[in-house]
Design a protein around this nucleic acid. Structure first.
Length: 562
RNA sequence: UCCCCGAUGGUGUAAUGGUAACACACCGGUUUUUGGUGCCGUUAUUCCAGGUUCGAGUCCUGGUCGGGGAACCA
């Protein structure tokens, strides 16, 4: 192989993240006969957010990259906070992101029987016992970091008594909170989680899947690793906060002599100007600070979808963010960039005037209508063209006209000429103002021979404006969104005051916007570029035929420093 | 006070002992019938101190800083 070939080989080879390196090493060593099975294990106690999107992309993406598949598993061991509404929302969001759980759909609750048997096995092996003490008592005996704990007086109960009591717990003989099952490990362990953790507790609560079949429920640590093992998960990927749980995860697998799934932790995603805690997002919903979990300002997947984000953009974002073990805060600008990058290539361009004022072309006769050809997407010739009607009365953006201007102003002003996109160059004549001095109408003349594409006028127009023919326009409400929180780190320090950090101007509703007529039939899910303004999509919740509502997903980058 | 993890430009991620790369952001230039897009350019001696080595961001030792850890939550 020549040097050049080596260089080319290296140049096209994308560097591997640490999990990919581990997987490749596992593959190379023939571990699990080359089988790769990952899982995404949400608890159905809330809606998925952009942080989960990263986790989804990692677990599904890595498996797919190495010829493996992924399970979707609902980690439903705490019926108190879980519901089918959340299960359905999660399934919808994962699917929308573009992933299929080819390994199957599972519920930890499906394993309650097996998990119960595992607990019995531990008891029989003398590795678990029933503790009759109240929670506070047990907490006191835990000791502290650096200070060993002390043994429960029930720690040395006979196996037979433990078996009898556990059976009774399952039968509902004992009251909620009256006793728990604990693993018998080491009350002096450096890792506090190994100081005889609780593994089963009594809850007389209806479970969204198992109903009242069970009154005892396994704790996370007793359920997760075993569920991975039951499914034969080879690579169990989770976030950094579970690092301390890994020794316990492995302890159970070893004690039970079951398939050794392996847990690997990576840093979760943090985004500035938003929060990523399900509990806190729930509070925003419950206190009506937002319009539900899918409010377009929410960092939830459903919110991003309603806002106009595409699955492609979110996947690209997740890819750019990378996978490592260092805590991070990603600039929300990267997310917006990913959306623009995707949409710039694909979004149809349309004309829309959000803050309309009248633009009258004096030298165009009343009633004259000329149809002008325009590109649907200059970035994509295959998107074709369409025709727009041009006439005497048009709508223009209020922001595009100013009386007092300097040299940096490219738009319309007294004495200035501008190009109307895909139409003609027009020259200022005069304008009208209302009592408050607000400009209500601008009058211009069309420059002869300045038609788009066949301009021989010789007139130079620095700026190009978007417009909509008054005769053609359809009205709509348009919602503009800004960041939900004022500060970069709304949870900063104490977690108490994020509710006080809400941006009062995060939603701006514009009514009476004038859009080109084709938009009256815009389908839900299509994202448009409103020329010069940004990317917009139909609001799936409020838009109705005849009463259109659009959301702005993101602005165009604005380079104007005027 | 003990255990675990981490530390590379403004933000992320790479460099796998051979002389710091890529993306986003920012700033400047250029192209443009979207002040969009595209294109070009500027921005770090890798937390500190020792050590090993011909050679250290990478290995070793000690420190500093940051994150996580005691729930009948996940």
């Amino acid at each position: 192989m020549s040097n050049q070939e080596v260089e080319e080989g290296n140049a096209t080879k994308k560097p591997l993240n640490f999990i990919e390196q581990k997987i490749e090493a596992d593959l190379a060593s023939g571990k699990n006969e080359g089988r790769i099975l990952t899982r995404f294990p949400p608890e159905p106690n809330g809606y998925l957010h952009i942080g989960h999107a990263k986790a989804i992309c990692v677990s599904f993406g890595l498996a797919a990259k190495y010829g493996g598949i992924t399970n979707l598993r609902f980690d439903d061991t705490n019926p108190e906070k879980e519901s089918v509404e959340y299960v359905d929302a999660i399934r919808r969001d994962v699917a929308w992101l573009g992933f299929e759980w080819k390994g199957g759909e599972y519920y930890t609750s499906d394993y309650f029987g097996q998990l119960y048997a595992f607990a019995q096995q531990l008891i029989a092996q003398g590795q678990a016992y029933i503790d009759d003490q109240p929670a506070e008592e047990m907490a006191a005996q835990k000791g502290a970091p650096g200070v060993p704990g002390t043994a429960s007086p029930f720690r040395d109960r006979s196996i037979e008594e433990n078996q009898r009591l556990f059976e009774e717990m399952k039968e509902g003989t004992h009251a909620e909170g009256s006793r728990v099952l604990r693993a018998r490990i080491d009350m002096a362990h450096d890792n506090m989680l190994l100081r005889d953790p609780v593994i089963y507790r009594i809850k007389f609560i209806e479970h969204h899947r198992t109903g009242s079949d069970w009154v005892i429920y396994p704790m996370y640590d007793f359920a997760h690793g075993q569920s991975d093992s039951i499914e034969g998960i080879t690579h169990s990927l989770c976030s950094l906060e579970f690092e301390n749980h890994r020794p316990l995860y492995n302890w159970f697998i070893q004690a039970l002599s079951i398939f050794p799934s392996e847990q690997t932790e990576f840093a979760r995603l943090n985004l500035n100007y938003t929060i990523m805690s399900k509990r806190k997002l729930l509070r925003l919903v419950e206190e009506d600070a937002v319009d539900g979990w899918d409010d377009p300002r929410m960092p939830t997947i459903s919110g991003l979808r309603r806002r106009g984000y595409t699955p492609e953009a979110i996947r690209e974002f997740a890819d750019r963010v990378g996978v490592a073990k260092r805590n991070n805060t990603i600039d929300v600008g990267l997310l917006e960039w990913a959306l623009r990058d995707d949409l710039n290539r694909r979004a149809p361009r349309v004309m829309a005037v959000l803050n309309p004022i009248k633009l009258v072309v004096l030298n165009v006769p009343e009633g004259e209508v000329e149809w002008l050809k325009t590109d649907n997407n200059p970035e994509d010739p295959e998107a074709g063209t369409r025709e727009l009607p041009f006439g005497r009365e048009l709508w223009m953006e209020a922001d595009d006209f100013r009386v007092d201007v300097n040299k940096k102003w490219f738009r319309l002003a007294p004495g200035r000429a501008v190009r109307l996109k895909s139409a003609y160059i027009v020259e200022y004549v005069d304008h009208k103002e209302d009592d408050q001095g607000q400009v209500t109408e601008v009058h211009v003349n069309r420059v002869a021979n300045s038609k788009s594409g066949e301009d021989t006028s010789g007139v130079k127009a620095k700026g190009t404006l978007h417009w909509v023919a008054a005769s053609d326009a359809v009205q709509a409400e348009v919602r503009l969104y800004d960041r939900l929180f004022l500060s970069e780190d709304p949870e900063g320090g104490e977690d108490s005051n994020y509710m006080n950090n809400l941006n009062p101007d995060s939603l701006q509703v514009l009514s009476g916007c004038q859009l080109e007529h084709s938009l009256s039939e815009a389908p839900v899910g299509t994202v448009y570029q409103f020329t010069r303004l940004g990317y917009f999509t139909i609001d799936s919740k409020y838009s109705k035929p005849g009463n259109l509502v659009f959301n702005r997903a993101v602005t165009l980058k604005d380079g104007w420093k005027g």
